[in-house]
Structure formats: structure tokens, C-alpha cells
Design a protein around this nucleic acid. Sequence first.
DNA 1: CCAAAATATGGTCAAATGACCTTTTTTCCC
DNA 2: GGGAAAAAAGGTCATTTGACCATATTTTGG
Lengths: 191, 191
Amino acid sequence: MDEFEQYLRTRTDLNDGDINYILSLAIHKHLRRNEFLLREGEVCRYKIFVTKGLLRTFGTAADGSEHVLQFAPEHSWTLDVESYDRQQPAHSNIAAIETSEVLLWPKTDFDNLLSTLPQLKDLSLQLISRNIYNSRQRILTALSATPEEKYQEFIQSFPNLLTRLPLHMIASYLGISIKTLTRIRQAQLRR
Amino acid sequence: MDEFEQYLRTRTDLNDGDINYILSLAIHKHLRRNEFLLREGEVCRYKIFVTKGLLRTFGTAADGSEHVLQFAPEHSWTLDVESYDRQQPAHSNIAAIETSEVLLWPKTDFDNLLSTLPQLKDLSLQLISRNIYNSRQRILTALSATPEEKYQEFIQSFPNLLTRLPLHMIASYLGISIKTLTRIRQAQLRR
DNA sequence: CCAAAATATGGTCAAATGACCTTTTTTCCC
DNA sequence: GGGAAAAAAGGTCATTTGACCATATTTTGG
């Protein structure tokens, strides 16, 4: 997958041999719109890298409503951390929003790669650190921002996703009703 | 610090020598109520372990309001991840709620420990994984739960903190007004 | 290209929430 | 122990938000 080679080249100094080796262990998978990669209760067996398309990770609340935890567009990683780390049943779902292409590494293979390739490990740690920071930021926003501020922040953070996502998923990500989101957008048009 | 020895003994198989070595690199610090360990804009230089007392980490929103990101009681770790990892200015504050005792390791020292002691590294990775999972859970709750549900969940998760925290900090942690929290508690008494 | 489904907008209304204020109670610390 | 400060509770009111409904618009996949 050129996409992935490109990705690794720009952020690590892994050589061609290593990159090819990493790729050789990956399972290539094509996903149609709305196809699931992981369902609640299943074990998240793979590290997932999105080469093309767009995935979403979402949880289900007590009342059955779905809430988007993360969007994963091309060139990003995703998984259910807890489930993957311990190979236990997951509490979240991962599904394709657009037709997508992903690379999958079984945990044992990826663990081997991590212990063999320090550059890959460094990259992993960076991603984890970023993940934790992003989560904190999101919690802070969820706690303190008004719906309008949340939407503005979303636009700032993901300008490229704006046109690719149905509004109700954005609302779900922001934790507001679609009605409120529509109202905000109307108010903005009038300015 | 007995507290810390105890902690390490119960979750790793580090031997006495290792534990003493880890402890020998730690700075012991006493904190009074409301004393700050980190302020926004400063660099988070240390890994922090709380041996006694209770700390809080909080962020400041655009309008100046404070929002609690984490409570760290005795036997828990805390820090500003992003700031610590990159030794850059922090976006959050850490302060003592109760009179507390903490152990501090400068990043370089702790990094050395991590590369020397695989058991410590394993523990770290576990903590990180848990951290990420907790964050997800908290985001999901923030997005989907009613104030009452949030409070119930808080009681479930931190029964021991309930009596130690002023209500306005719980409200701040849950992202609801103190008024709403008071109302919920009144409603519960009447049952 | 077309029918069906998904998505977005709009209207109305009740309820929940926060802002602002005062009063009561508790805690702190000298 | 006592005075000051902090915390909790209570009252009132305007506003925001979501639920529920219908309708218009767009997208999708065969």
C-alpha cells in the first residue's frame, strides 16, 4: 500500500526493507459503507491503519443511543485500546462511513514488530501521547463549551471532514442533538 | 515511603533493591491544601505519585471557568502527559485538595528507570492503557448521560472520594452546575 | 436513471438547566 | 474557641435544549 509506505517514510527513518517487512505482515481489507470492522462484545484482534476512506468508532449508551468516539480518516490508526491490549471483548464498535481500505495486523505480529523495530515503537508512543492529550482536550470541551463552541472547535480541528460526514454523526460526536446543530448552522448562515 | 513500596510490591515483582533504587531517585514533597504542583504555562517536569492526600488536575476554559479533569488520591499517578512527554508548557494545573505527600521523579531519571527496569515499563504501559480506556469512558458519559446518570456513575466509580470532595468540584468534574447537582441530591434524599 | 432510503430542515412545546441572588451551615485555622 | 471564609442549599426566572412531528432535499445502489 503506497499510502502506508508514504506515511511511515514521512514520520520515521525506517528503511525500505523494514517497511516492506511491516507491510508483509498486514492483512489488506476492503470495507463497504456501513460495514463493521468490530462489534461490541467481539475482541479487537488487530491494529488498524486506514489507507483510504473513513471509519468511525462509536459506543452505545444505556438507552441504546450511539455516540461517536472517534473518526478515523485515511492515514490514521484506530482500535479499541482496552480490547486490543487485553484481547477482551470490546465496548465499542468500528464501522466504515465511506468505502474504505484498511491494513490489519494481528496483535502478536504487531507486538513482534514493536520489539524488533525501535522506530516503530517510538512512533507508537508518540501516537499514544497524542491520543491521551486529545482525549483530555475533548473532555474539557465536553465539560465547558456551549454547543456552538463545540461546533466551531470541530470545524477548526477537522475542516476536511466537514463535508464528508452526515450532520447527525457530527452531532453525535459533539454530544448535542441534531436539532441543536441545525439551529447553529442556520444562525451562522444569517451572519 | 512505605506507601509506595507497598504499591510496587503488590503490582510488580520488582525486588527490594530495585524498589529502593527507584525511591532513591524520587523527590519527596509535602503539599498544603490548595498548594499548586503545576500551573498552566509551566513545564511538567516530574512524574508524580501521590502517597497521601488528594490532588486535582484542572483546565481553564475560554471564559475562565475551571474544570476538573482528574482526581488523584493516594496511591495514584498524575501528570500533564503532553507537557511531560515533550517538556513543553502545560495546559492544565495540578493542585492539592487535601494536605498531601507526593513523590516526584524528573523525566530524565524516570526515563532511565523505564529503560532499566522492564517491570516498571510494563506497569507504565498498563497505566497508559487504563488511562486511555477511562478517558473514552468519560467522553462517552459526557456525551450521553443525563446529569443524574453522571452523578450516579461518579458515586459508583469513586465511592471513597465522595465525602472528601467539595460538591462544587464534583460538579466541575461532571460538567454540570452546582445548582443542578444540589437538586439531584435533594431528589435522592426524598426517596 | 429511478425508486427508496437516508439526510437535513422546520415548527411547536414542555422540561431541564444555569445565572443570579440570598440565606444557612460547615469548615478552617489562628 | 471563635471569627472569617468557604461551602451548601434554596428561590426565582429566562433561556436553551431536546423530543416529537412533518416536510423537503439529497444520496444511494440496483
